[in-house]
């Protein structure tokens, strides 16, 4: 059985957010919900200042606190290492959110796609309403650009009252495709693969660089690794001075 993991090369990452927007597209994420996100930081004071960007997503922890804490086993581990969620079993208690040290699980406080449920046009008779567009384009389901492939393994769009999070695009991986954030990254900063496969490119990267993971000291054993630096700037060497 493969054990899936992702390596993110921060030097290749250009901080464009294509991964996160593509994720919303692939997984039919409602307004305000992000499975793929980032932490940014501006360090220093002018003119010695730098901007840093670190993509984040579910870490698919080997020892996943969200799974341990789920009372209904809605949050569970697949054999391939993916931390998966079952919308139907979810009772919306949000313990997983509480337990997740990374803040990557979201809760649906509202019926999804509020924007698309609006029935008011901006110019009566001349422009449609969002609802009308969804009705015409996609039989009233979710959004006009709704991706049906998502529904193969999870509710195609998640209802009010349940949590949701990144699934490493399990529906795609099952078909032998890469997670969509990996495919959509223009910079090839995300490398996905099987840790059990000794010849795999991610094994090469994890051996070549000293990879780090988020909050490693918590012992969750994340399966998202980071290598190199967003900002590998060259500088003039000195010994400083007193």
């Amino acid at each position: 059985m493969p054990k899936y993991a992702m390596v993110i090369d921060l030097q290749s990452c250009v901080g464009c957010g294509a991964c996160s927007i593509a994720c919303k597209n692939e997984n039919n994420l409602s307004e305000g919900i992000f499975w793929s996100s980032k932490i940014t930081e501006t360090v220093g004071t002018f003119p010695n200042v730098r901007y840093h960007y670190m993509p984040t997503l579910c870490n698919h922890c080997e020892d996943a606190p969200c799974v341990r804490g789920c009372p209904t086993q809605a949050m569970h581990k697949l054999d391939n290492g993916i931390t998966m969620h079952d919308t139907k079993k979810c009772i919306g208690c949000r313990y997983c959110m509480y337990n997740c040290p990374y803040g990557v699980i979201s809760f649906n406080w509202e019926k999804p796609f509020k924007f698309w449920r609006d029935d008011e046009p901006v110019l009566k008779g001349c422009t449609p309403s969002p609802q009308e567009v969804v009705r015409k384009v996609n039989n009233g389901t979710a959004t006009p650009y709704y991706n049906p492939a998502r529904a193969e393994t999870l509710a195609g769009a998640r209802p009010k009252g349940v949590v949701e999070k990144c699934t490493f695009c399990d529906h795609r991986v099952k078909r032998g495709e890469l997670p969509y954030c990996v495919e959509a990254c223009p910079a090839n900063a995300r490398v996905f693969g099987d840790l059990e496969n000794g010849t795999h490119e991610i094994k090469f990267l994890l051996g070549k660089f000293r990879a780090f993971r988020l909050k490693e000291h918590l012992g969750t054993k994340p399966k998202v690794y980071y290598i190199r630096n967003f900002n590998p700037a060259a500088y003039d060497r000195t010994k400083g001075g007193v």
């Binding site: 919308t87 009772i91 208690c93 999804p112 529904a151």
Partner: peptide, 18 residues
């Protein structure tokens, strides 16, 4: 204490075969 899922219709309807 948990919030019960109140909107299943969309989830069910959209589990169409791909």
């Amino acid at each position: 204490a948990a919030l019960k899922p109140t909107f299943r219709a969309l989830a069910e309807a959209s589990t169409a075969p791909a």
